[in-house]
């Protein structure tokens, strides 16, 4: 077991955990949080790929490291939009779940 592999396994578990949260959380806000867990797990895996590609004095392959930065910003934008939607929906209906329309349909994923 070396360091990148350790964090790689951590990333794998985070993705699985996030998917679980995405399915079981009734509140959209918690789903968004779970989505962020999945996202950070994916980025962590990418970071592991980068670390494994260390060469020529660079601590890691800079290409995936750069892409992770882009990814984090994109995930934040998505979170901001989703949170704004949830709050607007709440202001309009007072509901804090997707439940009413969900009643006869399976949850996300």
């Amino acid at each position: 077991m070396n360091v990148p592999t350790l964090f790689g396994l951590c990333g794998a578990v985070l993705v699985g955990l996030g998917l679980y949260g995405l399915v079981v959380s009734p509140q959209p806000l918690r789903k968004i949080l779970a989505f962020n867990l999945v996202g950070s797990g994916v980025f962590l895996l990418f970071g592991v790929v980068a670390r494994r590609g260390a060469a020529l004095g660079m601590g890691g392959d800079p290409v995936p490291q750069a892409l992770v930065i882009t990814g984090i910003v994109v995930a934040f934008s998505a979170t901001a939009l989703a949170v704004a939607l949830v709050l607007r929906l709440h202001d309009m209906t007072g509901a804090a779940t997707l439940a009413p329309a969900d009643a006869d349909e399976p949850p996300v994923a």
């Binding site: 964090f7 951590c10 670390r51 992770v68 910003v73 934040f76």
Partner: peptide
Amino acid sequence: AWVRLAAVDAALTEAAIG
């Protein structure tokens, strides 16, 4: 964790944004 993966740029971004 990002620091431990030698990705300090990503660490700064994660701390600030995430």
